[in-house]
């Protein structure tokens, strides 16, 4: 058994919280640069220029790209030969979040309960933690801070197997169309198909972690990603919804085997501040 001290996890998480909110992944920057070249609307190009300038200011000033520094969502891959010592794993993640959001001057956006008092927890805890046990003796921590504006435009539908691929396409287009300017386009569209409602939504969120421009390994799924991106960009919504040809930067689809009776589809919408960062301990 390899031993990992909780202190090591806490400081890794603290740093991930701060860095992921300030440093935009390179693949997103590349996608924005390409969007600036391709965008047909002059106002849309001005907006994309400001979006890029914003990411540069964030890095120079070392302040968050967006004030909504999100719900701290974690994906952990815990090697089965790892022993956590000095405390427990979930507490360590939450302590890292507490320190990161406080010491990094990030906004605390979490309230204690959803519909009673809604009192701010003041340290952005609790985090949302998805843990997978994997072979090996490493711990991989991925953070994907998720803003409320784009999350609110996400959707789930229990389609019938007979709805087929057309049903998936219609649902995705309808969801993006309805969201319009609300989720801060250009957006990234994460789609999960298959499994049960919990798995469908989980893989839709995981789809957002895949680098933009990288497609699903299955050619039919990759083709659907490309087709949906083209169709979404014909909606006319454009940067910030002011009209244009760049409504989405990418569509990433993940699939899971389905029950003979079901074809659930989840759509997780992500704004252009498509933040995520990974560290291996």
């Amino acid at each position: 058994m390899r031993k990992i001290q909780v202190e090591q996890i806490i400081s890794a998480v603290e740093s991930l919280c701060i860095r992921s909110n300030i440093e935009l992944p390179q693949d997103v920057r590349i996608a924005l640069d390409k969007a600036l070249e391709d965008e047909a609307s002059p106002l849309g190009r001005e907006i994309i220029k400001d979006i890029i300038k914003n990411t540069e200011i964030a890095k120079e000033e070392y302040i968050p790209i967006c004030q909504d520094t999100g719900f701290a969502v974690f994906f952990l891959k815990l090697g089965q030969d790892v022993q956590i010592v000095g405390g427990n794993l979930n507490d360590a993640i939450n302590e890292g979040v507490r320190r990161g959001y406080t010491n990094g001057y990030l906004r605390k956006s979490i309230v204690t309960d959803p519909f009673l008092k809604r009192v701010n927890t003041k340290d952005n805890t609790p985090a949302i933690i998805h843990t997978e046990i994997v072979p090996g003796d490493k711990l991989t921590i991925t953070i994907a801070p998720k803003g409320g504006g784009s999350e609110n435009m996400s959707a789930l539908r229990m389609l019938k197997p007979a709805d087929g691929v057309e049903g998936i396409k219609n649902f995705v287009i309808e969801t993006v169309d309805k969201a319009g300017s609300n989720p801060c386009p250009p957006i990234v569209v994460g789609v999960g198909v298959g499994g049960t409602i919990d798995m469908t939504t989980l893989i839709a969120k995981k789809a957002l972690l895949r680098p933009l421009g990288e497609h699903h390994p299955q050619p039919e799924v990759a083709a659907l990603e490309k087709e949906l991106l083209e169709e979404i960009n014909k909606l006319g919504i454009g940067p910030q919804g002011f009209g244009g040809t760049t409504t989405a930067l990418a569509v990433n689809i993940e699939t899971f085997p389905a029950h003979i009776a079901s074809m659930p589809v989840a759509i997780n919408i992500q704004c252009h501040v498509a933040r995520h960062m990974e560290v291996e301990i």
Binding site: D50, I57, A58, E61, C66, Q67, D68, F242, C271
Partner: peptide, 13 residues
Amino acid sequence: FAAIGGAGALLAQ
């Protein structure tokens, strides 16, 4: 008016 959503650093300046 709309300000650019997600451009929090630029607007803060």
